[in-house]
Amino acid sequence: DHDVVPEDKFQETLHLKEKEGCPQAFHALLSWLLTQDSTAILDFWRVLFKDYNLERYGRLQPILDSFPKDVDLSQPRKGRKPPAVPKALVPPPRLPTKRKASEEARAAAPAALTPRGTASPGSQLKAKPPKKPESSAEQQRLPLGNGIQTMSASVQRAVAMSSGDVPGARGAVEGILIQQVFESGGSKKCIQVGGEFYTPSKFEDSGSGKNKARSSSGPKPLVRAKGAQGAAPGGGEARLGQQGSVPAPLALPSDPQLHQKNEDECAVCRDGGELICCDGCPRAFHLACLSPPLREIPSGTWRCSSCLQATVQEVQPRAEEPRPQEPPVETPLPPGLRSAGEEVRGPPGEPLAGMDTTLVYKHLPAPPSAAPLPGLDSSALHPLLCVGPEGQQNLAPGARCGVCGDGTDVLRCTHCAAAFHWRCHFPAGTSRPGTGLRCRSCSGDVTPAPVEGVLAPSPARLAPGPAKDDTASHEPALHRDDLESLLSEHTFDGILQWAIQSMARPAAPFPS
């Protein structure tokens, strides 16, 4: 592969990997390779389809078979030569091979799209000592099968071997295949498990690692696999990028399955594409389908809103127990993405979901129960707010008499603000006073009005108090039968009158 990737590009890729991570280095090298001529790309395919690569990765054979028959990708048995050289000459001794072996032994695996480039050397060096003999053996194999790289107009793939297949390693990572398949204008990513390549439709969760975000852009890794992070704060999961590491605690105790298979379609829109997988259930989501939507993949363990709600429900009964003089119970939860139609709101002032922060849900004790107040519409209280300059209440639009249902020339009671006709409430011909108009209920007259088809109010509507207090003497005590009587009149003013009279009014101040 030294004929494909020059030394300066190799060093530039290593520097970019240390600065921005393996995914960015892979993407940059792939983009550079696509700008080369067809001879360089053909050399790339020839390096990929060597015999030892085909033996190690069985899924490469179907890719090789898909090439046109007129494309010669065979390799000479006596060494490598550029395709432009007409004579089959043995190339001179390859010093770059020693360079590659020494550099890969030092860096474990470079971040390139060629056999030198995919593992994360920093994480491997940190986690190597417990498994040094086995990992050293794996390093000797890295130059042979560490990076199976493929690129063409139909298929483009980048393979990364790992030393996680050490025997006896619980939940060992089998390997990473960062794979971009450009077929019919689409893009897919796969993962390699035990020599087999699994596409998103049959993606397997190998051991402790999972394909957290099938994305090839942005600074985030394709698999949430930063070796420096180790395990999740809650004892979460091992990262795919942690090559040759000792077994780590796999999943939280509440995880239903340690080796679950995540779905390959969004649980909201039932469509495929780039998904984020939940650590607590097999569901996966688009970032845009979450509520609120996320802009980037959160670091650490992530769970959907259903799993978060289940966790909150487990903690909430203990938080609601009476604990005198104790601060509110704080339950730190990872930043969760909410699927459509589901929402768990945190306290005000918290950062938005999706940031690399930890939301704190506070379970406050329930407030003391209070008697429910009568629910009145805002339009129902409008007549009470229509007060004239002299303190006389004006008529609201649409006000109707509670007896006849007519809204023409209605009066407004100064005591309960109900609309009424003087002739309907006082049919006996009582003279109307000039000021202080009161309806039949507030004036103490319980004589029913002779209106055909309208039920008369119940005599129990009024329960006047002592006459010594004029204001308190007109406080009506309405009961269920009074409400039914008012409802039978089918008037809004009657219902409003009952609601206003049912509310307690402050006692009249004593004259000074």
Rank of each mutant, 00 (worst) to 15 (best):
S245T: 13
S245P: 12
S245D: 08
V246N: 05
V246L: 10
A248F: 15
A248T: 08
L252I: 10
P253F: 15
S254I: 11
S254Q: 13
L258A: 05
N262C: 10
D264W: 06
D264K: 15
V268N: 06
V268F: 14
E274R: 13
E274H: 11
L275C: 14
L275S: 12
I276F: 12
D279E: 09
C281V: 12
P282L: 09
R283N: 05
R283L: 07
A288N: 11
P292W: 09
L294V: 05
E296L: 12
E296K: 01
W302A: 14
S305Q: 09
S306K: 07
C307M: 15
A310G: 09
V312D: 10
Q316V: 12
P322K: 13
R323K: 09
E330N: 11
L333M: 05
L333C: 04
P334Y: 14
G336T: 09
L337F: 07
E343W: 13
G349F: 11
P351I: 10
L352A: 03
V360G: 13
L364P: 06
P368Q: 12
A380T: 12
L384E: 06
L385M: 03
C386V: 13
G391C: 14
G391Y: 06
L395K: 07
G398F: 12
R400E: 14
G405M: 14
D406P: 02
R412L: 10
R412D: 05
C413E: 00
A418N: 05
A418S: 04
P427A: 12
S431M: 01
S431G: 13
P433Q: 10
G434T: 02
G434N: 06
T435Y: 13
C439G: 02
R440K: 06
S441R: 07
D445Q: 08
P448R: 09
E452L: 11
L455G: 10
S458L: 08
P459E: 09
R461A: 03
R461F: 09
P464Y: 11
K468Y: 08
D469Y: 14
D469G: 10
A472F: 06
L478H: 09
H479F: 13
H479C: 00
D481F: 03
L483G: 05
E484D: 13
S485H: 10
S485P: 04
L487I: 13
S488Q: 04
I495N: 03
L496Q: 00
Q497L: 01
W498P: 01
M503G: 02
A507E: 05
A507L: 09
F510R: 03
